[in-house]
């Protein structure tokens, strides 16, 4: 009886939704409003209106800034939840019983010191890490002109931290990212959105509203750069912390 009621309720809700979907223009139809009005507007006036040479960034942070705000909040909440699970279990436990027993190779096997890091790898990573960092900063800061942006640059910066952790060991990298600082940094993305959103309220009266005046081109660009830096730093911090939480000393 109850199941039947739920099923009929679902059907009643589904019918108007299905009718609405049927009313939508067919996928890929060149006469659909999205192709005749929205895309055309973005392509023709996007660079001028959004203040970003890179149209993708313009749409992502300016036209669809509110959607990106929601997306960033969801992603970073999920990452923070994953990190919380990792941290409360006291780091990841080893499943020792599942590992195959080490092949017996003589009595001195157990007394062998841990493998030192290869000097070649150490040298190359030390040589390349600053360049990776510079590239990440370029991708983040130049995201409104060339392909790239906060998400990509943040992943590259996080990858730099991961490489350094693998080669130098977690003990050397962990002090560089102290707990209280990292806690704020991993919230940098939503916080930067809140900051820029408040600025938008001051400028236009709308949350995340970018000032439309032609003379304020630089302000729009700066607001976008702040958002990109927030996303990039937050992403890098949270990737690095997740990896550090999984890595034993």
């Amino acid at each position: 009886m109850k199941n039947a009621a739920v099923a009929s309720l679902l059907v009643i809700f589904a019918i108007p939704l299905l009718i609405a979907v049927a009313e939508l223009p067919p996928f890929g139809d060149p006469d659909a409003p999205i192709h005749t009005h929205i895309s055309a507007r973005y392509i023709e006036q996007g660079v001028e209106e959004a203040g970003a040479e890179n149209l993708v960034t313009g749409v992502l942070l300016n036209y669809r800034g509110f959607d990106t705000f929601g997306e960033v909040t969801v992603i970073f909440t999920a990452l923070a939840a994953a990190l919380a699970v990792l941290l409360t279990s006291g780091g990841v436990q080893y499943f020792q019983e599942d590992r195959p027993p080490a092949p017996p190779k003589g009595a001195d096997e157990s007394e062998r010191p841990p493998t030192p890091v290869s000097p070649v790898v150490l040298f190359v990573v030390r040589l390349l890490a600053p360049f990776i960092g510079i590239f990440a900063a370029f991708v983040i800061l130049h995201g409104h002109v060339t392909p790239g942006g906060g998400f990509q640059g943040g992943a590259i910066l996080g990858a730099m931290f991961i490489v350094l952790t693998i080669v130098l060991g977690a003990g050397k990298v962990r002090p560089r990212l102290p707990e209280p600082l990292a806690r704020w940094l991993q919230g940098a993305a939503p916080l930067s959105f809140v900051l820029i959103g408040a600025l938008g309220v001051a400028f236009t009266g709308f949350y995340l509203g970018f000032p439309p005046e032609h003379s304020l081109h630089l302000v729009r660009e700066l607001m976008m750069v702040v958002l990109e830096i927030g996303i990039g730093v937050g992403g890098a911090a949270i990737f690095a912390r997740i990896f550090l939480a999984m890595e034993a000393d």
């Binding site: 960034t57 990841v92 080893y94 790239g148 992943a155 990858a159 990737f239 990896f243 999984m246 890595e247």
Partner: peptide, 24 residues
């Protein structure tokens, strides 16, 4: 833009996290 995300996140970070998890 999407290609860069795919290369950095898909091929880089995700693989590293998978490998660490498998190692654990």
């Amino acid at each position: 833009d999407v290609a860069m995300t795919e290369a950095a996140v898909g091929a880089g970070i995700t693989t590293v996290l998978f490998l660490v998890t498998i190692g654990r």
